[in-house]
Design a binder for these strands. Structure first.
Lengths: 328, 328
DNA sequence: GTGAAAGCGCTAACAT
DNA sequence: ATGTTAGCGCTTTCAC
C-alpha cells in the first residue's frame, strides 16, 4: 500500500480511504491512486485490514456435510448473498459428529468472524459457552421450534413428519414404516420420525422403524424394504428420510412387482430433481433449501448493518410443502 | 494474549512460543500458561498471527459448484486432509461462469493463502497473471492432459469419452448419442463428448449431440430422448454427461417400453450411489472423486512443507474406471 | 528457556 | 480533502 501511495504521490491513509470510500477522495488523486494500483497489481491484505479495524468480513457456517444436496444448495444461496455484501464464508462440516462442532466453532471464532451460522439446535455445553461469550450474531438454521441461541431460520421437522402422516392417514393407510439413513446421528431425521409416528399412532395405526447402516443408501434401502415386507407384510406405506432412500425403495418395488401405491405407498423427503420422473412420480416433501439460505443471509446482514428497527424478527418458520404425486 | 501472560506471570512472547511450540517452554510455565488460557477462555487471533508471520494457514479452492456430488465429495476429502494439517479452506464457486473465477482468485489472494486449488485448466489471462505473480502453490484438479500452471491432479476427460466409445463399439453399437447438461459451459463434459465422438466416428459410427437447457435434468433428459429417438430411430446407444441425466433417460425408456440395452444402451457418468440399483443396473464411469481430494492435499502439503526431495511429482493422472453393468 | 523490542500492513482518530 | 500518528494482536529476531 505504501508503494501505491508513493507512486501516486499521496499518503498511505489516502490510499486506504480511497479503497474503502472512494468518493471521499478527490477525483484527481483517486485516478492517480487507481492507476498506481493497476500498474503495481496491488492487492490489499485482508488480514491486516481485519486486524486494524478489529472487524472481519468473515461469516462462519457449520453444516453436517456438504455432500447432501439439502445443505449444499442452502450453502450456495447463502454464499451468493453474503459474498455480494462483501463477506467471505468459512465453511466447516461436522460429518454429523457433534464433538467436531466444538472444534470447528473454536477454529472459526479464532478468525474473529462477524457472524456464525449453525445447523440445528444441538450444541455441546462448551460450544454454547464459547458462543455466548463471543457475542457474535448467530443463526441456527434448518430447524425450528426451540428457543435457540440468537436467530433461527428453518422449519419444524416434527411438523413435517406429522404432515406426511396426516396425508397418508387421509388416504386410508394405517400400517406404516419409516426408513432412515443415519438415524442415530441425524437429529432432524429423528424428529421427522417422531412427528410421523406420533400422528400415525394417535390415529390408531402402527409404524415400523428401520435404519440404513451400509454405504450404498439406494441398494440398502431395497434390501431393508424386502426384509421389512417379509416380516411385516401388512405394511402399506413408507416414509423415507430422503429421496434417494425412497428411490431405492421404489426400484425394489419394481423388481418385486409390488405396485406403487397399491401394494405400497412411498413418500420421500427433499423433492430432488428426479422425483418428478420416477415411475410413478414420487410424493415427497420439499424443504425450503434455498429460502433458508436467503433468509439466513438477510437476517445476518440486517443485524450486521445495525438496522435496529428491523431487528425484531429473529425467528423464521419457513415450513415445508408436501408435493403430492402418484406414489402415495 | 497479554492477559494470559499476565495471569501466568510470564511474558507474551513465552505464551506465543507455548502456543506454537509447547515443548520449547518449560513444563512449569507451560502448565501455568495452559491454566491461564483455560481460565480466561482465550482464543488466539488468527488474523494477527497471520499478519505477524506473513504466512497464513489458508488454502483457497475454486470449484464450478458445490451442489454437484462430484465436487462436493472432492471438497470434503480435501478439507478433511488439509484441516488435519492445520489449514483452513476458503471455498469459492464460479457457477460455471469463467468471469467469476478471476474475481474469486482476487478475493482469495487478498487473504494471502498458502495454496490455491482450481478446477481445470481454463483461466482468464488476467487470472493467470495474478497467479504467476503471486507465486503460491497451485493445483489444477479434475482434469489432466495440459501443461498447467503448477501441479495437476485429475484425469483426461477425452480419454474417458474414448473408453466409453470403445466399450460400446466392442458391444456392436454404431449409432450413438451424447446427452449433456450445461454443454456450452462445462468444458469437461465437452471434452468427454469430443473423445467419445472422435472414437465413434473413427470406427465408422455416428454421434448425435443433445444439450439439456431446462431446470429439471431428469425430466428434460426424458423429453429430449423422446425427441431424439423420434428423429433418429436408428440410435442404439446413449452416453450421458452425468448419472442423473442417465437416470432420466432410463426412466423414459421404461415409460416408452424401450428395453435397455436391447432397444437402447445407456451409459452414465459419476457412479453415483443409485446407479447400482436401477433397472437394469447402470453402466457408468467412476471418476476418482475422493482420490482427487486426497492427492491434491498430499501434493500441496508436500510442497508447503518444503520437502524438495519429493517435489518432482507434480502431475497425477488418476484415470477413470468404467463400471460395466447391464444397461450397455 | 525466557523476555524486550521491532514490526507485519493496514485502519482510525485527529489535526490540518 | 489529506496527512500524521498510534495502534490492532500477534511473531520474530536477538540478547540474556
Amino acid at each position: 500500500m505504501s508503494e501505491v501511495a508513493q507512486l501516486a504521490d499521496v499518503s498511505p491513509s489516502t490510499v486506504s480511504l480511497y479503497l474503502r470510500r472512494p468518493d471521499e477522495v478527490s477525483t484527481r488523486r483517486g485516478e492517480r491512486i487507481q492507476s498506481a494500483i493497476d500498474k503495481l497489481g496491488y492487492l490489499p491484505n485482508t488480514m491486516a485490514g481485519g486486524l486494524a479495524s478489529s472487524r472481519s468480513n468473515i461469516i462462519g457456517v457449520i453444516v453436517p456435510t456438504i455432500t447432501f444436496s439439502f445443505f449444499s444448495e442452502t450453502l450456495e444461496t447463502l454464499e451468493k448473498s453474503l459474498r455480494a455484501a462483501g463477506y467471505q464464508l468459512l465453511i466447516g462440516n461436522t460429518e454429523f459428529d457433534a464433538s467436531r462442532e466444538e472444534e470447528l466453532i473454536r477454529s472459526i471464532l479464532s478468525w474473529n468472524p462477524s457472524g456464525l451460522v449453525l445447523t440445528g439446535f444441538s450444541h455441546s455445553r462448551k460450544s454454547v459457552s464459547l458462543l455466548t461469550k463471543s457475542d457474535i450474531s448467530i443463526v441456527e438454521m434448518w430447524d425450528y421450534g426451540q428457543e435457540g441461541l440468537d436467530m433461527v431460520v428453518g422449519f419444524s421437522h416434527r411438523t413435517c413428519g406429522r404432515l406426511v402422516a396426516e396425508h397418508l392417514i387421509r388416504n386410508g393407510y394405517q400400517n406404516m414404516a419409516f426408513l432412515s439413513t443415519n438415524f442415530h446421528r441425524d437429529i432432524r431425521a429423528n424428529e421427522r420420525y417422531l412427528g410421523f409416528r406420533d400422528a400415525v399412532v394417535a390415529s390408531g395405526g402402527s409404524v415400523e422403524l428401520r435404519e440404513l447402516v451400509g454405504r450404498s443408501n439406494t441398494a440398502e434401502a431395497g434390501k431393508l424394504l424386502r426384509i421389512l415386507i417379509n416380516e411385516h407384510p401388512e405394511t402399506q406405506a413408507l416414509f423415507c428420510s430422503n429421496d434417494m432412500v425412497a428411490l431405492g425403495a421404489m426400484l425394489e418395488c419394481q423388481r418385486q412387482g409390488w405396485s406403487i401405491p397399491e401394494r405400497l405407498a412411498i413418500v420421500g423427503f427433499g423433492n430432488q430433481d428426479f422425483t418428478g420422473s420416477t415411475l410413478p412420480p414420487m410424493t415427497t416433501v420439499e424443504p425450503p433449501r434455498q429460502e433458508i439460505g436467503n433468509h439466513t443471509a438477510r437476517l445476518l446482514l440486517t443485524r450486521l448493518r445495525g438496522n435496529d428497527s428491523t431487528n425484531t424478527e429473529t425467528r423464521i418458520d419457513l415450513g415445508v410443502r408436501l408435493i403430492v404425486r402418484e406414489s402415495s
